[in-house]
C-alpha cells in the first residue's frame, strides 16, 4: 500500500509545480516556467510565473515532453548524444529539447510522466526539476504563494473547474494567456482528452490576439482574408474569452472539453463569479 501516484493526475502535477516553485524561491532562482506532462508527453499542468520570459513556456513544455517520450532525462540524453543532440532537431519539428532540466517521472518501476523547467541556468533547471519529481514521494503539501498574475490565473482555473463539476460537465482543459498571448497557465482536468489542450490554448490565443470572443475574431479580417488558415493558431470556435482586471492584468482564457457554446458559458460564468470584466 504505497501512496506514490500510479499516474499523473492534475493534483499530482500541481503538487510537483508547487514544490518546484518552493525550491526555486529557497535557492533564489529567477522565476521561470514549470511544466508537468503525462506518460504520453501531453501537458497535465503548466504554469509560468509573472516575470518569467514568455518564451520559457514552450521550452519548459518541450523539455517535459522530451523526458517523457524519450524516457530519459536531458542530462542523460546529453551524455548519450555526446553533445550532438542538435542533429535530432530535424525530427519532431525541433521539439526535442535535450537540455538539463528535463526529467522523467519514475515511479513503480516505470516512467509515468515528465517534468520540465526553463528559466534558470542548466544546473538550476535540473535541480528544480528534481525537486519537482521527488515531491511525489513526500506526504507534505506544498502550498506556494505566487505572483499577482499567476495567482489570479490559478483562481480563474479553480473557478472554472468548480463550475464544470457543479454542472456535471465533461472535464476540460483550461488555458490562461496574458495580454501578449504568452501562456501563463494550462491545466488539463483528469479525464479530459489531450486533444483539448491545444484547442483551449488556441481559443485563448485567438481571444487575446483579437481582444474579442474567439468566434467573433473573424469579423476583423474576413473581408480581406477568406481563409482562416493564414495563421494556424486562429481558432474561430466559441470558448475563448478575453478579460481585464482593473487595467493591471489583461488576458484571455480558453476552455475546451464540451460543446463550444457550453465552454464559452463556463468561461463567462467564471469571470462573472470573480467579478472580472469580460473585455470586448
Amino acid at each position: 500500500m504505497s501512496l506514490v501516484p500510479e499516474r499523473i493526475t492534475l493534483d499530482t502535477a500541481l503538487k510537483i509545480i508547487n514544490a518546484m516553485i518552493r525550491f526555486a524561491k529557497d535557492n533564489q532562482v529567477f522565476p521561470g516556467s514549470y511544466a508537468v506532462v503525462d506518460e504520453g508527453g501531453h501537458v497535465v499542468a503548466f504554469e509560468r510565473r509573472d516575470i518569467a520570459p514568455v518564451s520559457t513556456a514552450d521550452i519548459a513544455i518541450d523539455k517535459a515532453w522530451t523526458a517523457a517520450t524519450m524516457k530519459a532525462s536531458g542530462r542523460m540524453l546529453e551524455v548519450i548524444t555526446r553533445g550532438e543532440a542538435w542533429r535530432l532537431n530535424v525530427k519532431h519539428k525541433g521539439r526535442l529539447t535535450i537540455i538539463p532540466g528535463a526529467i522523467p517521472i519514475i515511479a513503480h518501476g516505470r516512467i509515468i510522466g515528465g517534468i520540465g523547467h526553463s528559466g534558470g541556468s542548466a544546473e538550476e533547471d535540473l535541480k528544480i526539476s528534481q525537486a519537482g519529481w521527488t515531491a511525489i514521494f513526500r506526504e507534505e503539501d506544498f502550498k506556494e504563494e505566487v505572483e499577482e498574475k499567476l495567482s489570479k490565473a490559478r483562481l480563474i482555473a479553480r473557478t472554472v473547474m468548480n463550475i464544470v463539476e457543479e454542472r456535471n460537465l465533461k472535464p476540460v482543459s483550461i488555458a490562461v494567456l496574458d495580454e501578449w498571448g504568452g501562456l501563463l497557465l494550462l491545466y488539463r482536468m483528469d479525464g479530459a482528452p489531450y486533444g483539448t489542450l491545444e484547442l483551449a490554448r488556441d481559443k485563448a490565443w485567438t481571444a487575446a490576439a483579437f481582444r474579442n470572443f474567439s468566434e467573433d475574431a473573424a469579423k476583423f479580417y474576413s473581408n480581406h482574408v477568406n481563409n482562416a488558415n493564414w495563421n494556424e493558431r486562429v481558432t474561430l470556435v466559441p470558448g475563448g474569452v478575453p478579460f481585464s482586471t482593473e487595467e493591471t492584468f489583461r488576458g484571455a482564457i480558453g476552455i475546451s472539453g464540451n460543446e463550444p457554446e457550453i465552454d464559452k458559458g463556463v468561461a463567462v460564468e467564471a469571470l462573472k463569479r470573480l467579478a472580472i470584466k469580460v473585455q470586448e
Binding site: 525550491f23 529557497d26 535557492n27 535541480k127 528534481q130 519529481w133 521527488t134 514521494f137
Partner: peptide, 10 residues
C-alpha cells in the same frame, strides 16, 4: 531555514 539545495528520492 530555506537551506534545501538538493533533492533525493527515498
Amino acid at each position: 531555514v530555506g537551506a534545501r539545495n538538493f533533492s533525493y528520492v527515498p
